[in-house]
Structures are given as C-alpha cells and as structure tokens.
Computed example of a mutant assay.
Amino acid sequence: MRTERKPTRLDRVFARLDREPERPAHIGVPRMSRHRVVLFGAALVCYLAIVWAVLITSWLVRLDWQVMFFRPYQQWSEIHAFVDYYVVLGQRGPTAVMVAAWLGWRSWRQHTLRPLLALGVSLLLLNVTVGAAKYGMGRLGPHYATEIGSNEMWLGGDIFPSGHTANAVVTWGILAYLASTPRARRWLSAVSAVTSLGVGLSTVYIGTHWLSDVVLGWIAGLLILLALPWFEPLIARAEERIFDLRARWRDRRRGAVPAGGPVGRPVVLRPLTDRADAAPDPVPTGRPASRPPAYLAPGPHTTRAERSPVTPAGSRRPPHPERHPRGTTPVTRP
C-alpha cells in the first residue's frame, strides 16, 4: 500500500504563489524616467555640497554648534520621554521587521516576491552607501566633540550621515515606492516624509547627531529611493531565479517519493521439473535481465518438500540406520 506525502507549510505557500505566478497587471513598475534622473542628479549635487561645507568648516558647522549649545532636550524636557520612543522608528531592526511583515503579506496577496526583494535591495544599498560614508569620514557626535567650532572629521566617529534618518527615509519610503495606486503613493509619500523628518529632528533633540548629519541622512535615503528603478531588472531576474529553483527543488522531492507508478509483478517460483521446458518469466520493468531478484539466493532452488530444516549446528534429525529417504521403497524386515 502506498501512502501519499503530507504537504508541508512551505508547499502550501508555494502552491498559493503558483496560482498567479506573474506580476498583477494593474501594478506598475517604476521606471527611471527623465524626471527621476533630474531629481537624482540634484540630490547628488546637494549631497556633495553638504559634505564639502562640513569639510571646510563653513556656516553649516557653526549652525551645528549653535544648535548643540541650545540644548533642546533641556528647553523642552517635557517631551523627552515621547522622543525616546519615537526615535525607535528610525532604528533598522524594529522598522525592518515591521515593514517586512507588511510587504510579506502583500507578496502573499499579490502572488509575487517583488515587494520583499525590493526591500532587501534597498536595505543592502543603505548599508553599503551610508555605512561606507560613516566610517570613511569618521565624524564625532556632539557628546564626544573635542574642540569647539571644529567639524570633528576624521576622528573615528560614525555619525555622518545620520543612519537613523537615512533608514527612516528608506524603510518607510519603500511603502510609497511599492504602492499600487497613485493616490496611495501620494499618501504614503507624505506619511514617510513626516516620519523621517520627525526621526531626524529627534536625534538632534537628544543630542546624538549634528543638524548637518540629519540633512545628509535625508538626502542619502532619498538617493537610494530614486535609484531603485535601476535595480528593477535585477529584482525581476532574482524573482524568476527563485521560482526556477523552487520548481527544481519540488521536482527533486517528487522524484524521491514515487507518484504512484505500476507495482512490479511478483515472481512465481516453480519446481525444477516444470521450469525445464517452460519459457522464462518476463523480466520486471526496470531490472536488468542478467541480475536475479535481490531477495532470492543465486543458483538452483529446491522445492520445500526436498528441504530439511537445519540449524547452525546441523540437522535436528538424529541419525537412524533404519530411516530411509522420502520417495524410496523401504526394505522389508525379515
């Protein structure tokens, strides 16, 4: 009797994705239009200008010190507890988990892996670009400043640009980037802009970042969102590759458990006298003709009546001079 393999949870997930493997037609993929290219170029120019203004210790650095001496956390101390919780919206771990849960549900509903792959690509770009800039410029924060009025560059810090702000822009902005309707995209863009703006100002309030760090973090996150359409072909190929690997893995699993082919016909043993003139039995399908079945000993086989039950120590029948083999005529006693 053959038993069917019980489907696992992963099989059920792939079965739902198989219902509509193509991307829904009503969801458009953003393209790198001329308008977006112009915005990307303008944001890149602003990024370089802010870095240059900090390097030459311009008016932007003086503004940083003025805000630091103002000490917002002392001026508005009643909102300190709220800001401590609000700034979590810019931390990479909690925000990535929340957004990934929402995009995972969208992937389930739309039968496509694009939302999750787009989130992964954006976070990868964020870690590479912002992380390299942080450790490359090595700016110290307000709490660790060494000289009043200096730009605090190349001193081993890691706050320029602000990672909290850039992460908030990318993590919450990806929801607007993946919106399925223009109205939803507008609303989500406004919500993500306000959220990232609040996260950046929160870091300035508690004194962990300079104001220029926050401004550069906003632009760094915006650059990543504007550059995402360039990676859409890579996302599409990755999605196709994942589905192809899934199909191969599923076919391999099906090959390991037979799907119900014809069962081999049992071999019927006949006495030697009957097998001499009879035609040989047909060889079962899939078994070599010159190889006997695995459960039969090689060589000629005797009938059950001709066998003698034996033990490892020999025959259990004691030797008797008057016992005759079966099938022979006993000699009459005198």
Rank of each mutant, 00 (worst) to 15 (best):
L188I: 07
T181Y: 12
T171Y: 00
T208F: 02
G200M: 05
L140W: 02
V215H: 01
V214Y: 04
L155Q: 12
W172V: 00
S212L: 13
L175C: 01
G163S: 07
R183N: 11
Y205F: 13
V194E: 09
Y135W: 07
P142L: 10
G173S: 00
W187Y: 14
I148K: 04
V199H: 07
P182Q: 13
G136W: 05
W154Y: 12
L175G: 01
A145V: 13
V199Q: 04
G157R: 06
G200T: 03
S162L: 07
A179D: 09
A179T: 07
R185D: 11
L155K: 14
G207D: 06
I174Y: 00
V169R: 03
L125W: 01
M153Q: 12
S212A: 14
L188R: 15
A132G: 14
L197R: 01
P182M: 12
V214S: 04
Y144E: 15
G138P: 02
H209C: 11
L211N: 09
L178F: 07
L125A: 08
L126N: 09
V214T: 08
N167I: 00
N127A: 12
W210I: 08
V214H: 09
L197G: 12
Y205W: 08
T208N: 09
P142E: 03
S202K: 00
H209S: 14
V204Y: 02
L178Y: 05
L175I: 07
A132R: 06
M137V: 14
A168V: 01
I174N: 00
G149A: 12
S212P: 14
T171F: 00
S150W: 10
A168W: 04
G141W: 08
A193V: 11
L188C: 04
N167P: 00
T208V: 12
S192L: 13
G198I: 04
V215P: 10
L188W: 12
I159T: 13
A132D: 03
R186V: 13
S150Q: 10
G200E: 07
L125T: 04
A190E: 10
K134E: 09
E152L: 11
I206P: 13
I174C: 00
N127M: 05
H209Y: 10
V204T: 05
N151W: 09
S180G: 15
